[in-house]
Computed example of a mutant assay.
Amino acid sequence: MEESYKISDPQVLRAVTHPLRARLLGLLRADGPATASELGRKMGESSGSTSYHLRELFKYGFIEEDPEQRDGRERRWRARHRYTSWNSREMSDTAEGREVVKVMRLWQADALGQIVQEFDESEWSPEWVEIAGMSDHITELPPAALAEFMARTEEILRELEARHAGAPDAEQVRIWVGGFPRMRREEP
């Protein structure tokens, strides 16, 4: 699997803004290859619906057939990339690009809310309960410093992932990193 799918065309990014497609792609990335029927059962959707949306993800390069795991009757799909990225500045050159980036950001925030809602402390060890969560920082940085923070976060994550590969207590962890400037409003 390739590391990243860097998108510069708003039409391509729009293909994954559909909630079902985004969830299908997320499952293929997290759980590995699956058929439309298997994904339909996991998501409570018909295999016809999941099959249609998988073909759309394939059309735009997000997924591919898995040649290593052929099923006699049904295609097995796998994600082509670990994650999707785009340059928001480049996308913001058009109204369509600005709209699709806004939709993606809102979808990401909704997904984060769902993850927080589904986390049940009673199902995890005290070590996981203690460390799971989020922090909220407000600081003053120029754009270059925020860019450095984002890049260094990626570097640290890849280093930790390599160092702890195969650890017996390792679990899939969803990590969200974001930074948005805050508009200062003058009081009337």
Rank of each mutant, 00 (worst) to 15 (best):
S4N: 10
I7W: 11
S8N: 12
S8K: 13
D9C: 06
L13E: 06
P19W: 05
P19E: 08
R21D: 02
A22I: 03
L24V: 11
R29H: 09
A30R: 15
P33T: 14
P33R: 11
P33H: 11
T35V: 05
T35D: 03
S37A: 12
S37I: 01
L39I: 07
G40N: 06
K42W: 10
K42C: 06
M43Q: 15
G44A: 07
S46N: 13
T50D: 05
S51D: 10
S51K: 13
H53N: 14
L54K: 06
L54S: 07
E56R: 13
F58R: 15
K59E: 13
Y60I: 02
G61T: 07
I63M: 03
I63L: 07
I63K: 02
D66H: 06
D66A: 06
E68A: 15
Q69D: 13
D71N: 14
G72A: 14
R73S: 10
R75I: 04
W77Y: 15
R78F: 08
R78S: 03
R78I: 08
R80T: 08
R80Y: 03
W86N: 00
W86K: 01
N87E: 06
M91K: 12
D93R: 14
D93S: 04
G97L: 04
G97T: 02
V100G: 02
V101E: 02
K102I: 00
R105M: 09
L106Q: 15
L106E: 15
W107P: 00
A109L: 09
A109I: 04
A111E: 13
L112S: 03
G113F: 13
I115H: 11
I115T: 10
V116F: 09
E118Y: 07
E118V: 03
S122P: 00
E123H: 11
E123G: 02
S125E: 13
S125R: 12
E127I: 00
A132K: 05
M134E: 01
S135A: 12
S135Y: 14
D136F: 15
D136P: 00
H137R: 15
T139D: 05
T139P: 00
T139F: 12
T139S: 03
A144G: 01
A144C: 01
A144M: 02
L146A: 08
A151K: 14
T153L: 04
E155L: 07
E155H: 09
E155N: 03
L157H: 08
R158H: 09
R158T: 04
E159T: 13
L160I: 04
E161Q: 12
A162F: 08
A162G: 06
R163K: 12
H164C: 02
A165F: 01
A167E: 08
P168V: 07
A170K: 12
E171A: 12
Q172L: 13
V173S: 05
V173N: 06
I175R: 04
G178Q: 11
G178C: 07
G179Q: 03
F180A: 14
P181H: 07
R182E: 05
R182C: 04
R185F: 10
R185M: 07
R185T: 07
P188W: 14
